[in-house]
Computed example of a mutant assay.
Amino acid sequence: MAKIELTEAEKREVLECLEKGKPLDDRFRFLLFGDKREVELVWNGKTSQVCNVVLPFQVIEVGV
Rank of each mutant, 00 (worst) to 15 (best):
A2W: 01
K3V: 14
K3Y: 00
K3R: 15
I4K: 15
I4C: 03
I4D: 06
E5G: 04
E5S: 15
L6W: 08
L6F: 02
E8W: 07
A9V: 11
A9P: 02
E10L: 04
K11C: 11
R12M: 07
L15A: 14
L15F: 06
E16G: 05
E16A: 12
E16T: 11
C17E: 01
C17V: 00
C17H: 15
L18S: 07
E19W: 08
E19D: 13
E19F: 00
E19I: 08
E19C: 08
K20C: 03
G21I: 05
G21W: 07
G21P: 03
K22Y: 01
P23A: 02
L24R: 08
L24T: 06
D25Y: 03
D25T: 10
D26I: 09
D26R: 05
R27M: 10
R27P: 02
L31G: 07
L32C: 05
F33Q: 06
F33S: 12
K36M: 01
K36V: 14
V39C: 01
V39H: 00
E40H: 13
L41T: 11
V42S: 09
W43N: 11
W43R: 12
N44E: 11
G45I: 02
G45H: 04
G45K: 07
K46F: 02
K46R: 07
T47D: 03
S48L: 07
S48Y: 05
S48M: 04
S48A: 05
Q49D: 13
V50Y: 05
C51M: 09
C51H: 08
N52F: 09
N52Q: 10
V53H: 12
V53D: 04
V53S: 09
V53L: 13
V54Q: 14
L55E: 14
F57N: 12
Q58F: 04
I60P: 01
V62M: 06
G63D: 03
G63F: 01
